[in-house]
C-alpha cells in the first residue's frame, strides 16, 4: 500500500511517499521532498506532496493512507502539516494517522541500548521523550530546559523525522486497519496570553 508521510513539526517541510507491504509490513521509501525552512511550511508543503507523489510514479488518488507528525513542535507551521493531512484525508477519502514526531525520529534509531530523542523547542527548551532498546516510548513527550533533564544513556539528536520514520511509527495502526486516532496536535504549552488586569485610568488628575 502507498502511504503519504507529512511532518511540519520541526523546521523541515517534509513530504514523502512510502510503500508498505500489507503481508510482511516491510516499508520502502519511494520519493521525498524536504526543505529546511521554518517559514515555508504553508508555502511548500502541498507542492512537496505533489512532487513526491509524482516522483514515486503515482497520483494523489493512488494513496491508501496518510501518516502525519502531530508534534510536539514549536512552529506555527505544525498546523500547516496537520490541516493539510486532514484536508487530504477528507478529499481523498483515505485515513490520516497521527504520529508523535519524536516517535517518528525514534523509528530511525539503531537498535541497541535505550535512548532519548531531543528536538529544539525554542525559548531555550527542548522537547524530549525516552525510549527502550526496542524503540518503545517509556516517558514523554515533555518540554523542559536541557539543564533540568536527567542524563540519558544515549541521545538521538536527529533534528527531524524521515518519511520512512513517520510511516514506521504509524505502521502498526495503518496495518491494523483500525479507525485512526484523531489528529490532535501535541502542543505541550499553553498559548501565551494573559487575562487583562484592572484597566489603567486615562485621566491624569
Amino acid at each position: 500500500m502507498l502511504v503519504l508521510a507529512i511532518d511540519t513539526a520541526t523546521l523541515a517541510v517534509t513530504a514523502g511517499v512510502v510503500s508498505v507491504d500489507r503481508e510482511t509490513g516491510a516499508a520502502r521509501p519511494l520519493a521525498e521532498r524536504v526543505t529546511l525552512d521554518a517559514r515555508a511550511h504553508g508555502e511548500l508543503l502541498t507542492p512537496h506532496v505533489l512532487d513526491a507523489v509524482g516522483d514515486a510514479g503515482h497520483g494523489l488518488a493512488d494513496l491508501d493512507a496518510i501518516a502525519c507528525g502531530v508534534g510536539p513542535g514549536p512552529y506555527t507551521g505544525l498546523r500547516a502539516g496537520m490541516v493539510t493531512a486532514a484536508a487530504l484525508s477528507h478529499s481523498l477519502g483515505v485515513p490520516a494517522y497521527p504520529v508523535c514526531t519524536l516517535d517518528a525520529i525514534a523509528a530511525s534509531a539503531e537498535p541497541g541500548e535505550p535512548f532519548r530523542v531531543l528536538t529544539d523547542a525554542r525559548r531555550r527548551e527542548v522537547y524530549w521523550a525516552d525510549y527502550d532498546a526496542e524503540g518503545r516510548r517509556l516517558d514523554g513527550p515533555h518540554v523542559d530546559k536541557p539543564a533540568e533533564l536527567t542524563p540519558a544513556a544515549r541521545v538521538l539528536d536527529h533534528e527531524q523525522p524521515t518519511p520512512l520514520g513517520i510511516v514506521e511509527a504509524a505502521k502498526a495502526a495503518i496495518l491494523s486497519g483500525a479507525q485512526p486516532d484523531p489528529l490532535t496536535p501535541l502542543y505541550l504549552r499553553r498559548p501565551d496570553a494573559t487575562e487583562p488586569g484592572t484597566r489603567k485610568r486615562v485621566s491624569t488628575s
Partner: peptide
C-alpha cells in the same frame, strides 16, 4: 494550507 490540499 487546507485550501491548497483541497485544490491539489
Amino acid at each position: 494550507s487546507a485550501a491548497k490540499a483541497y485544490a491539489a
